[in-house]
Design a protein around this nucleic acid. Sequence first.
DNA 1: CTGGCCATTGACAACGCTGTCACGGGCAAG
DNA 2: CTTGCCCGTGACAGCGTTGTCAATGGCCAG
Lengths: 336, 336
Amino acid sequence: MTGRATVYDVARVAGVSIKTVSRVVNGSEQVSEPTRQRVLTAVAELAYVRNSIAHSLRTGTGDAIGVVIDSIADSFFAKLVSVIEERMLAEGISVLIASTGRSGTRERGQVTRLAGQNVRALLIAPTGDDHDYIIELTRGLPVVLLDRGWELPGYDTVLVQDRIGAKAATDHLIARGHRRIAFIGDNGDLPTIAERRLGYLDGLAGAAIEVDDALLRTGCGEPEPAAAATAELLALPNPPTAVFSSNPRASLGVVRALHQGLRTDIALISFGDFALADSLEPAVTIVDQDPTPIAEAAVDRLLARMRGEHSEATNIVLPVTVVPRGSGELVPCNRS
Amino acid sequence: MTGRATVYDVARVAGVSIKTVSRVVNGSEQVSEPTRQRVLTAVAELAYVRNSIAHSLRTGTGDAIGVVIDSIADSFFAKLVSVIEERMLAEGISVLIASTGRSGTRERGQVTRLAGQNVRALLIAPTGDDHDYIIELTRGLPVVLLDRGWELPGYDTVLVQDRIGAKAATDHLIARGHRRIAFIGDNGDLPTIAERRLGYLDGLAGAAIEVDDALLRTGCGEPEPAAAATAELLALPNPPTAVFSSNPRASLGVVRALHQGLRTDIALISFGDFALADSLEPAVTIVDQDPTPIAEAAVDRLLARMRGEHSEATNIVLPVTVVPRGSGELVPCNRS
DNA sequence: CTGGCCATTGACAACGCTGTCACGGGCAAG
DNA sequence: CTTGCCCGTGACAGCGTTGTCAATGGCCAG
């Protein structure tokens, strides 16, 4: 008994036709009570579980969605996926994860792969700036762009106020007297980070502070390069008095470097919360980019599309606020 | 053009039979070069992608595996899944995640669901202690039990030295002079935590320290209850001078509570690392339970099984070591 | 010239399921 | 008693793919 039971097995045991088994399993009303009972008994006896591949093939509707993200090891995306999975479980839909490692090529490969699977819809946090391929590959498939991808018209998107939030953080630091504020972030390929950088520049411009390129560090999306960049900033002849870290993973590196360099007197604001940010000394002020409402909104859109809604693409932009905790309220230090 | 192209479409365009298309797509040698070229041209023209549902149904081999874990929001499991997904991508296999929320009932539901999907194998971090259902539901499906589940014979398992590691941590604290050492952990249903608790008790017994039930806190697998439990411990008339936190998520709560209570003079060892553990003040001493080798070993086993290996079930136990960072080397404080 | 062999190709069935339609029987209306 | 309808049920096809097996045709040996 290696394979699983099929409708035929159940039909044989229950003494009915396979169609009747199908009806019972799918809860059709068109079955008499005694028959239903016999079928249910047989189902239990054989531990029958509907083969969802055959079901998908027949009905044409898959029972999984694909989620394309940077990496599931990133706690922001982990939380995002967690909420998505939870919501989808209620719909009986499975979640396939596909990570891009922030490579546009790999992203494309993953989307291609998923499009060939039984996915019924896609949630994508796009990496690169060329997303035309999505249009081509996902014909007839509901797609919601997550966290990024504002610039692709015709698709539902869910974002946060990247530029506004970044400007608010910068303003927050400027209001405490900082004028040498460093920016740590990934390279500008990521639309999100590009927006946050613009917000940072907005803030500086608003206070008529000249941009110092030495304080603008890109290519630091991960903890290690961010830590290295921070260490370099600290070693500058004229180091910054404040740091704006444009994503929580980079912030992990920044925090490590500041603590290792014993420079916790330098102000810090992180775009996006991270574990223990509020237990550090000082606790880290953040721009609150909570994954939960982002995921909820995205799932809402996706379910609506999966149910056949054909309205115009909507662009949801969630508000963010600065959450003061200590590190962002430090005033400029005078060490050097 | 709403649906995707099928072999029939390609066959029509290329002027061959569907079987030949299938042969070309699957790289069979039995096709003449000119025919192959014509087919490939048609494939490119129609952007044909093999329908993997039909493929799965026909071949009986799915192209996804299922991973059943507590929650993807837990960074330990997130890292685990990340490594698994990375490895599976190289095999062209997708990863389906299913979270249990540590509910045995839900775990069972998830395994049932996955067994009905096209999953080709399962990686399960079992929650409860009744795993007989796994045997029943996963007939003929390769299964590797991850991180827990030692007690289910006939299945490959990958664990760490839970009991030994916990004893080492306890010994480490005892060697610094601690005699009132608290234990924070989830309830004993989780085999892992039960083992760690035994290791903790081993340590106490080895030093002839009597167990104080007031210092043994269970039901704290998540940050919030762990923080609450820690706060209660601090309020005891005779509080502990050291804490052994038996999992990293609990440790997040313990750290928060210690910092909020300004009691960072209390020693702490965490079973399992967590982000920023080394940037805190003091840095947190850990028992190193690295998810990466666990995942690698599990994937190795799984791939071997998927390739048809029929050897005896293997039980891999990975070693752990205490990584001193500061918090575990604090000597007993005398405040009360 | 013929038989046999190999290389290439195609017709057909089947994977497990559900949609379509048809069938048989019971019952109310005519 | 017949007609027509509805209810419960089953036979059959087909979703897109691949495995089996047979057919075709070219080529070489006898």
